[in-house]
Amino acid sequence: MFAFIIRRAIQAIMVMIIISLIGFLVQQSLGDPIRDMVGISVSLEERDILRTKMGLNDPQLVQFFRFIKNAAQGDLGISYFHNKPALDVIFKKAPATIELVFITLVLILLITFPIGIHTAIYPDTKFAKYVLGFSTIGVAIPVFLTAIALIYVFSVELQWLPSYGRGKTVNLWGWETGLLTWDGLKHLVLPSISLTSLFLPLYIRLIRSEMMEVLETEYIKFAWAKGLKKHRVWLIHALKNTLLPIITVFGVEFGMLFAFTILTEKVFQWQGMGFMFLEAVERADTALLVAYLVVVGMMFVVINTIVDITYGVINPTVRIAGTK
């Protein structure tokens, strides 16, 4: 296990170096950050002086190695727009995104498992057919459309829920949370529903088909024959073996979830990392972009490592490579 984690840590570092290199290569085509910092009538000369002062006129490789050197000391550069260390900006925005993702995950779990299991056990009911039909439509609707439709119905027309932002937040040991205020929770409803809606169909279908497959296996038939209670057969014996592929898909889909927070955050003006990322692209705030890519890359490695470890816990027959 220890060797496995060490290997993953080395992998993570490699991933981050490669990501930052890619980030550096694309930043040139993103535009000139100086443009966002000065008024339009500032002369080319003045802009060039500023660029030299910021080290942006140095060769790409020199800039890259300077970045790596600083990064090794935990300094990922200074965001041009926020005028603060890029990592500080990211950590300040992270709680908003993490809370949104967390609530979305909870909603996905709470909705998909009961429905998925139910439709697997009773595949011929009307309910099952409606759910499947509906979920096909769900897959086809882009998230920003769902978001705008929700805003239109619940904010503009009914005026039940706020249309944008995080609302009132509370500072809990440096973590700005919106989960502890009524206003903050109200602000969470629409964004988390839009984001959840995107993943419901996939997971309901996945859980359903996996479960149906498992219900056909010999050991389930054996369990029935043994006269076990039906809830025990469904929820313990069948469900447990359904989980493995679902977790695999989740590990991969987690990236998608993050990618879609970007769109959701933009529509709802949700002050998280995704929104920050899009604004950074618009402003050619390249320092912040590279830092964001590195942090997200790191998160991916961590999550996939956790997924790999859970495999072993759920199904001991799966051995993690390198463990004994």
Binding site: I151, S155, Q159, P162, S163, G165, K266, V267, Q269
Partner: peptide
Amino acid sequence: IAEAATRVAALLSGD
């Protein structure tokens, strides 16, 4: 509020 559609929705919803 950078997103134009959100800005309009915020006004219409009274936010």
